[in-house]
Amino acid sequence: MTTETDFTRPSQFLHLQPFANTYGVTVVDEKPGSVVLEAPYLESLSTLPDLFPTSSIGAVGDMAAISSCMSMLPKGWACATLDFTVKMTGQARGEKLIARGRVLQAGKSFSVGSADVYTVCDGKETLCGVVMATGRNFPLK
């Protein structure tokens, strides 16, 4: 990666992240300040009985929240997660997750984003968790 790397578009950098590939994350929609990600149900990352674990909700929600923050940065900058919080709102059972991330605060040094995470089962979305993430903004070198 160089200072010419454009991390303002999640579709340009998420596929470069090995952990995002492990979760099977794809970018469904991206606009400045918001992003929508999907991740399939993977048995290797599940808990019994056939549930997405909180750690998966957190990881995918964090990617959506921080990606939305990165979409507001100038070209040649990136954002790294400092911390995130996951609040589960229900069971996470379904064929896939959809995480809708948005920027809450786009600062010079730090950004804050959140994501609502839904399970999809037979085409119906159900909120299963909310993630709030803080990231540190920095220039790529």
Rank of each mutant, 00 (worst) to 15 (best):
residue 141 K to W: 14
residue 66 I to M: 08
residue 31 K to I: 08
residue 27 V to H: 11
residue 91 Q to G: 15
residue 98 I to C: 10
residue 92 A to M: 06
residue 66 I to G: 02
residue 49 P to D: 12
residue 42 L to A: 15
residue 56 S to Y: 10
residue 108 K to G: 07
residue 69 C to M: 03
residue 122 D to Q: 10
residue 85 T to W: 01
residue 16 L to D: 09
residue 45 L to W: 07
residue 38 E to R: 15
residue 70 M to Y: 10
residue 51 L to N: 05
residue 39 A to D: 07
residue 99 A to S: 11
residue 43 E to N: 12
residue 80 A to G: 12
residue 45 L to M: 08
residue 116 D to R: 05
residue 11 S to M: 14
residue 87 K to F: 03
residue 95 E to D: 09
residue 110 F to C: 11
residue 101 G to K: 00
residue 91 Q to R: 15
residue 121 C to V: 15
residue 19 F to Y: 14
residue 48 L to C: 14
residue 77 W to K: 07
residue 140 L to G: 11
residue 30 E to P: 02
residue 82 L to V: 02
residue 33 G to I: 00
residue 51 L to K: 12
residue 95 E to I: 03
residue 80 A to I: 14
residue 53 P to E: 05
residue 100 R to K: 15
residue 138 F to Q: 10
residue 100 R to Y: 09
residue 114 S to F: 05
residue 53 P to Y: 06
residue 107 G to T: 02
residue 23 Y to W: 13
residue 93 R to G: 09
residue 134 T to A: 02
residue 60 V to G: 11
residue 63 M to N: 08
residue 84 F to L: 11
residue 100 R to E: 08
residue 98 I to K: 13
residue 74 P to V: 03
residue 56 S to P: 06
residue 12 Q to L: 14
residue 18 P to N: 08
residue 61 G to K: 00
residue 55 S to Q: 09
residue 2 T to I: 12
residue 61 G to I: 00
residue 62 D to Q: 13
residue 24 G to C: 12
residue 86 V to E: 01
residue 15 H to R: 14
residue 24 G to L: 12
residue 118 Y to D: 10
residue 15 H to P: 15
residue 68 S to M: 01
residue 104 L to P: 01
residue 17 Q to N: 15
residue 62 D to V: 03
residue 132 M to D: 05
residue 7 F to N: 05
residue 119 T to V: 09
residue 98 I to H: 06
residue 69 C to E: 06
residue 111 S to V: 00
residue 67 S to P: 02
residue 104 L to I: 01
residue 23 Y to E: 13
residue 72 M to G: 04
residue 68 S to G: 03
residue 76 G to C: 04
residue 116 D to E: 07
residue 73 L to T: 06
residue 16 L to I: 06
